[in-house]
Design a protein around this nucleic acid. Structure first.
Lengths: 212, 212, 212, 212
DNA sequence: CATGAATGAGCCTTCATTCAT
DNA sequence: GATGAATGAAGGCTCATTCAT
C-alpha cells in the first residue's frame, strides 16, 4: 500500500520533472512563444493535458522555471557576501562570487539561457521577477562593492556602474552563447571556458583596485 | 504631374514604412513569435494582406529589419577605424566609437532591442547574420585593439576578451533596457544616459591603458 | 464497462466517419480545391480542428479516401479472375467482373465520382496511385483478355485497346454521371441502371467474341 | 493615327490571347479551383487586374474557354452529318467524324482536357453547357446512328447506348490522358496516337455493322 | 490600356486548454 | 494520474476583385 503511494508519487515527480526538462530545452531553443505545449509534451514523452494538469498553464510553467532559477541564484550570492568569509579580501570575494555564479549558470545552462532571454521581454511576470530577485541581486552586489570601497580596496567609481559592469560579465556568456560560440569560438557550456573567462573578470577587478 | 507621381510613390513608401515602424515596436515589445501579423497591421493602420504583399512573409519582414540594423551598424564602425582619424589616439578612438554606437542604437532604440534579443535565438537567419555582420564587427574591433597594443597604448590583454568586454558594454543597454530601467533606474533611451554611460566606458579604457 | 469502452471507441470512429462521409460528398460535388476544410467540418457537424487532428491535413484526407477506394476496387478484380471460376467462360467472367465493378462503384457512388475526377489531375499523389493501383488493374484485366484469346473465345484484337475500351465502359458512368443524367436521362446511381448498362457491355463482349 | 489604333487593338488582342493561353494551360494542369488569377497573370506575363478587365471575372474566363471549345466542337459535328456527304456510307461517316473530333481535341489538347474535366463538376454553368451543347451533340450523333439503322447498315442496338459508347471513345483520351500516358504508355497528344486509336474505333464500328 | 496598391473574405493549420473517461 | 478527443480562437497567408492613377 505504502509502496504504491510512493510509486505513484515517484511517477508524479518523474512526469513533472520530464516536463520541466523538456520545457527548459525547448524554451531555450525556440523561445517561449516559439514553443508549443504539444512540443513540450512530445519531448517529455508525456500526454499533452499533463502540462496544464501539473502547472496550470504554459505561462505558469515558465514562471515556475524562472522562480526555480532565481531562487537558487540569489542564494548563491547571499552565501558569498564577504563578512561571511572574513578571511578573504573583498576583491577575492568578488572573483569567487563571479566564479560561483558562472558555475551555477553553466550547471543550469539551458535554464539560464531561457531565463536571461525571457527577462528581456516586458511583462507583468518579468516586472515581478525584477523587483523580487534582480533588485535583491543589485542590492547584494552593491553591498559587496561598498565594503570594498569602504576598505579602500576598490577605486571610488560610481557603485551602480560597477555593479552593472560586473553583472554584465557574469550574465553575458549565458545570454549570448550563440554569439560567443559562432563569433568568438568560445563554448560557455564547456568547463574549461570558465577558467579562461574568470581570468578576464579577475583582470577587470585588478584594474578597479586602488592603485598601490 | 510630378506632384502626383511623388504622391503615388509616397503612398507606397508610406505604407511600407508604417508596417516597418509597427513591426519594430511590436517585435521589440512582445518578441517576434509573440507578435502576429494582424497585430502589426492594426498598429500600422493597414490591411493585413499588405504585410505579405510588401515583405513576402512575416519572417522576411524580420529579416528586413535585422539587415537594416546591421548594415548601418557595421558602417558606423567602419567609419571609425583609427587610421582614418590619424590625429586621435587609439584609446580616444575606442571611446568615440562606443559613443557613436550608443547613439546609433539610441536613435534606433526599439529596433536595437529587437535585433539584440532575436539574435539570441538560434536559427538559420541568425547564423547568417552572425557570419555576415557580427564576425565583421569582431574583426573590425580586433583591428582597433591590435593597433592600440602595437602602439603600446593598451595593455597586452588577450584581444578577444577585450573585444568581448567592449562590445558587451556597448550592447547591454539595448539588450536589457528593462533591467537598467527597473533595477538601476537608468533610462537608456534618454539622451542624458549616454553621457553618463560613456563615462563608464572611458573609465574602463583608462584602466586597460598601458600604465605610464 | 465494456459498454463504456465501446462507446468511447465508437465516438472516435463516429467522428472520423462523419468527416469521411462529409468529405466524400463535398469533394465529389465541388472538387477537392473547391471544398474547404470548414465546409467539411460543417457538413459533418464537427469542429474544424478535428480534420487535421484525425487526418493530418486536407490533402491527407483526400489520399485516405482514394486509397480506400482503390484498395477494395482492386480486390474486387482479383477475386474475379477466371481460373478461380473455372466453370464459366472468359467472356462470362468479363461480364460478371464488369457488373461487380459497376455495383462497387454504385455502392460507393460519390467516392467513385471524386476519385475518378481527381485522378484526372496530375500530381504526385495521383502518379503514385497510377503506378500502384491502375497499373495493377490494367495487368489483371490484360490477364483475363489474354486467357480469352488463348482459348480462342475472343478475337485477336490488340489487348491494350480491349482493356482501354472495357475499362472505359466501366468507369464512364461514374466519371460523367452528370452527362448521363442530364443528356441521356440515365441515373447511374439507380439500381436499375446497371441492368441496362450491363446489357450494353454484354453486347460489346458478344461482338468481340470469335465468330463461330 | 490609324496605325496607332491598329497597334493598340493588336496589343489588346495579344494580351487577351496571352491570358487565354495561360488560363488553358493552368486550368488543365491544376484545375479551375487550383489555379489563381495571379498564376494566370504571371504565366501570361500580364498585370493581374487585366484578367478582370478583359473577362470580368475568373469564372467568366472559364466560361469563355468552354464556350470557345464547344462552339467549334459542335460545328465539326454538324459538318459531318452523312446527308451532306452522300457518297460515303454512314459507317464511314462515323469513322470520319470520330477522326475529325479526335484531331480537333488534339489540336486543342489542353483546352479539351480542362473542358472535359470541368464538365464533370455540377454547376449552373455546366448545366447550361449540357443543355446547349451536349444535348445537341447527342442529338446529332443519334441522327447519324438512326440513319445507319434505317439504311440497315448498323445493328438494331438501342441508339442511346451506341451514342454513349461512341462518344466515350472519342472523349476518353482527352479526359484521362494521364491514365493513357502512365498506364498504357499512349500519348494522346502525339499525332501517331490518332492513327492507332482510330483503328480501334473502326473495329468497333465494324462490329456493330449489320452482319451480311 | 496598363499598373500595382489596397481590400476583406477566406484559406488550412495550430494553438492552449478542457473534459469525460 | 493519465488519456486523447474536442473546442473556439487565432495563427500566417492567399484569394479574386477594385480602384486611383
Amino acid at each position: 500500500m505504502t509502496h504504491l503511494i510512493v510509486k505513484a508519487k515517484g511517477k508524479k515527480t518523474e512526469t513533472k520533472q520530464a516536463i520541466i526538462d523538456a520545457a527548459i530545452v525547448l524554451f531555450q531553443m525556440h523561445g517561449y512563444n516559439g514553443t508549443s505545449v504539444r512540443n513540450i509534451a512530445a519531448e517529455a514523452h508525456v500526454n499533452v493535458a499533463l502540462v496544464s494538469y501539473y502547472f496550470g498553464s504554459k505561462k505558469a510553467l515558465l514562471e515556475h522555471l524562472m522562480e526555480m532559477f532565481f531562487r537558487e541564484y540569489i542564494q548563491e550570492i547571499e552565501e558569498a557576501i564577504p563578512w561571511q568569509n572574513k578571511t578573504s579580501s573583498v576583491c577575492e570575494c568578488l572573483v569567487q562570487l563571479a566564479i560561483k555564479l558562472l558555475h551555477y549558470q553553466q550547471k543550469n545552462f539551458y535554464l539560464s539561457l531561457l531565463v536571461h532571454r525571457e527577462v528581456t521581454i516586458d511583462s507583468i511576470l518579468v516586472r515581478e521577477l525584477m523587483t523580487t530577485y534582480l533588485m535583491k541581486e543589485k542590492y547584494l552586489m552593491e553591498t559587496i562593492f561598498e565594503e570594498g570601497i569602504r576598505k579602500h580596496e576598490i577605486c571610488d567609481i560610481p557603485i551602480d556602474l560597477l555593479v552593472l559592469q560586473y553583472r554584465d560579465m557574469i550574465v553575458t556568456p549565458f545570454l549570448q552563447p550563440l554569439y560567443l560560440r559562432k563569433v568568438h569560438v568560445l563554448e560557455p557550456s564547456q568547463s574549461l571556458f570558465i577558467d579562461r573567462y574568470a581570468e578576464m573578470i579577475r583582470t577587470w577587478i585588478v584594474q578597479i583596485k586602488q592603485g598601490v
